[in-house]
């Protein structure tokens, strides 16, 4: 047990205020990006889960700067903005964080992108299926499965681009971390 804990290197300290705000700020930006009206037919249904990408990225690389309380507030605000059932996104982001945090040591050992991407694929499939199940329970209706599948595929497909942007921003503001 002690060996496993010590195999995780401690995170470098970030002193700059802006850099410390980066994980939460990018998660907020991801939420805004999702709710902005893009005029592509059918896009509103299939908007990728941008916030999930940000949470995944920061939980792997800087979990210390993405506190659960902050995630809760961001998820809650997203629910209020989209007009959907309140609390659903807050729950989703918190559970995603907890799930990634449990598996984090694997990502410390293996940092290759295909590995990180497959981790995200697993997380997204679980999260989207869970979201769909919760929606069915809340609305007592079995609709929207096809849209959920397409949304999952789109989210997984866009992740490399999001990961690139987040990684670049992280390196620019925090240095190699």
């Amino acid at each position: 047990m002690a060996l496993r804990v010590s195999s995780i290197p401690s995170l470098p300290r970030v002193n700059s205020g802006i850099a410390r705000m980066l994980p939460i700020a990018t998660t907020v930006a991801a939420v805004l990006l999702a709710v902005l009206p893009v005029r592509i037919p059918g896009y509103a249904t299939l908007t990728p889960a941008f916030a999930l990408m940000a949470v995944y990225h920061w939980t792997i690389y800087r979990p210390d700067l993405l506190p659960p309380a902050g995630l809760f507030v961001v998820g809650f605000a997203e629910d209020l903005l989209t007009g959907g059932p309140v609390g659903v996104n807050a729950l989703l982001l918190l559970l995603a964080r907890a799930a990634v945090l449990r598996q984090r040591r694997h990502f410390i050992i293996n940092r290759t992108f295909p590995f990180v991407w497959s981790g995200f694929t697993l997380l997204t499939i679980t999260a989207m299926f869970g979201l769909w199940t919760l929606h069915c329970l809340l609305q007592l209706s079995l609709s929207g499965f096809r849209a959920a599948v397409f949304r999952t595929v789109l989210t997984i497909a866009i992740f490399p681009a999001a990961s690139f942007v987040l990684g670049r921003t992280q390196r620019a503001l925090m240095g190699a971390g």
Binding site: V35, L36, P37, A44, T82, L131
Partner: peptide
Amino acid sequence: RVIADSGGGYVRTAL
């Protein structure tokens, strides 16, 4: 002007 949509959620609304 429409300034936000439901962003992939299980609702169809617009602000």
